[in-house]
Structure formats: structure tokens, C-alpha cells
């Protein structure tokens, strides 16, 4: 019996590998193609081969992309805005989750429902009215025009995750803290928050992933480069270098790089976080 089982797995293993490799090639080959073309010169692209072996590796494409794509400025903006959004989402969601889940008041259920409603509202339907609101308040072209909607639309899922984790924390802990004369704020930030670490990580990853690549709101609410985020490196570039394909490939590879590198380094944590967020959300 056991021997038969082993024999079977010996035959099936290669089939498993073949299936998985085919899927991997489909998922990753376009990116390899991108990388390959970004190192060639534009003239070399018109071949019928799948990949090019560049005569001379054109690092110059990347230099152009780096300088003319405003790469550093946009990267800094992306990191700053997304970082702030993550911190705010975590803070606001923990506070709201505690109030709705632990504190005793009549409207707790209603308020929680209201805050979760955001999950069902399509972001892009708010583009038109929000543009109006932000221009009336003079918020267009400021960081707030991105920060406010990023936090607001990440909040419902964060709140959902926080409440489901909070319900697993025993109330006795808080009771002891109250006996010792702890106030609510200290209970939240010194006792509850440290225990929510896994869900905080999940919320941080989901918020970052959702907003890092966002550009629809950015391109609607921003017009000057001051606060533009990373996707703009590409959007602006394609107009400017419309005939220089190689440089366009380089700017695409460069823009994708930070997220891919961070993902490869942290891939275990990120997959765990995404899986947790998706299953609970």
C-alpha cells in the first residue's frame, strides 16, 4: 500500500512541476520581456525574436528614466503619503473598533454599520464630487487631497479586521487595568494595541498595497508635480518620450522596482497578511 503511494507521487511530481512552471512563465515572462527591452536600444526592438540580446547594455535608458521621470521626488511622495495613510488608518480604526466593540452605548451598532458602508461604495463614483469639494476648499494639489480619501477608503476594511481580532482579546485584562486606575486611552494604546500586532500588520500591508498603486484620484486631484506619486513617472513620460520606446521600458521597470523588491524581501509576511485580510474581509 505504502509503496504504491510512493510510486505514484514519483510519477506525478514532474507533472506538478510542469504545470506550475507553465503558470509561472505566463505570469512572469512579460516582466522579463520588460526588463530585457529596457536594456536594449530602441532600434533593436523591431525583431521577430522573443527576447533581444542587446549589443551594448543601455544603462543610459535608466539614467534618463531616473532623472526625467522625477523618480526620486515621486518615490518620496509615495512613501510619505502612503506611510501617513497607514499610520492614520491604524490609529483611527483601533479607536473606532474599541468604541464600537467594547464600550457601552446605544448607537454602537449603527455607527459601525455606517463606517463599514464604505466597503460597498465604488471609489470612482466619488471622483467627480470630491474634485468639486477639494477645489472649493482649496485642497487640490495638496497632500490632503490624497491622504483623506486614501484613509477614508481603507478604513472600513481596517475596522472590520480590528473588530474581529479585538473580540478574541479577553475582557478580564481590561478589568484588571481599570482596577489599577487606567483610563480608556491608556487601555487602548498600552494594553489593546500591543495585542493587536498581527492585525495591525495585516491592515498596514493591505492599506499600503491598495494605495501604493493608486493613480486615478492622484491624477484627478493633483496638477503640479509637488505631491505626485510614483505612477506619474510613467504617465508623464510616455508623452514626452513617445518615440523612444527603450526609455519607456526603463521607466516602467524602474517604477515597478521598489514594490517588487520590497515584496520579495518581505514576501512571507505580505502573503500572510494578504491572505488573512482577504479571508477575514
Amino acid at each position: 500500500m505504502e509503496r504504491a503511494g510512493k510510486k505514484k507521487s514519483k510519477i506525478t511530481k514532474p507533472i506538478l512541476w510542469i504545470v506550475l512552471i507553465i503558470v509561472a512563465v505566463i505570469q512572469i515572462f512579460p516582466l522579463i520581456w520588460l526588463l530585457d527591452f529596457s536594456l536594449a536600444s530602441s532600434n533593436e526592438m523591431f525583431t521577430s525574436g522573443l527576447l533581444i540580446i542587446p549589443k551594448k547594455i543601455q544603462w543610459g535608458n535608466y539614467v534618463k528614466a531616473f532623472v526625467d521621470g522625477n523618480f526620486l521626488l515621486y518615490l518620496k511622495n509615495s512613501i510619505l503619503i502612503n506611510g501617513l495613510a497607514v499610520v492614520l488608518v491604524i490609529l483611527v480604526s483601533i479607536m473606532a473598533a474599541f468604541a464600537c466593540h467594547r464600550m457601552r452605548w446605544k448607537l454602537s451598532g449603527t455607527v459601525k454599520m455606517l463606517l463599514l458602508m464604505g466597503l460597498m461604495i465604488p471609489i470612482h463614483a466619488t471622483l467627480l464630487p470630491n474634485y468639486k469639494i477639494y477645489s472649493m476648499l482649496g485642497l487640490t494639489d495638496t497632500m490632503w487631497a490624497l491622504l483623506i480619501p486614501y484613509v477614508a477608503f481603507s478604513l472600513p476594511q481596517a475596522l472590520f479586521l480590528m473588530t474581529s481580532f479585538m473580540s478574541a482579546i479577553p475582557v478580564e485584562l481590561e478589568e484588571a487595568a481599570v482596577m489599577d486606575g487606567c483610563g480608556i486611552y491608556r487601555i487602548i494604546f498600552q494594553i489593546i494595541t500591543p495585542m493587536l500586532k498581527p492585525s495591525i500588520a495585516t491592515v498596514a500591508i493591505m492599506t499600503f498595497l491598495n494605495n501604493w498603486n493608486e493613480f486615478m484620484m492622484a491624477s484627478t486631484y493633483l496638477s503640479s508635480p509637488t505631491w505626485k506619486t510614483l505612477p506619474f513617472s510613467i504617465l508623464e513620460f510616455t508623452g514626452e518620450y513617445s518615440s523612444n520606446y527603450a526609455v519607456q521600458f526603463a521607466v516602467m521597470a524602474l517604477t515597478a522596482a521598489p514594490a517588487v523588491i520590497v515584496y520579495i524581501i518581505l514576501n512571507k509576511h505580505i502573503t500572510k497578511g494578504v491572505a488573512m485580510g482577504a479571508v477575514k474581509g
Partner: peptide
């Protein structure tokens, strides 16, 4: 772990890159 990591890579790349990349494809 390797394949799981590879399959997810397109998801961390900006839609802007993906759209322009496919325009070229």
C-alpha cells in the same frame, strides 16, 4: 514558496506599469 511568491508579483506592480506594458505586448 518560490512559486507562490512568483505568482503574486504582478499584483504588487502598479496598474500604470501593467497597462503600458500590455500596450507594448
Amino acid at each position: 514558496n518560490f512559486f507562490r511568491c512568483v505568482y503574486f508579483i504582478p499584483n504588487v506592480i502598479s496598474v500604470a506599469v501593467i497597462a503600458y506594458l500590455w500596450k507594448f505586448i
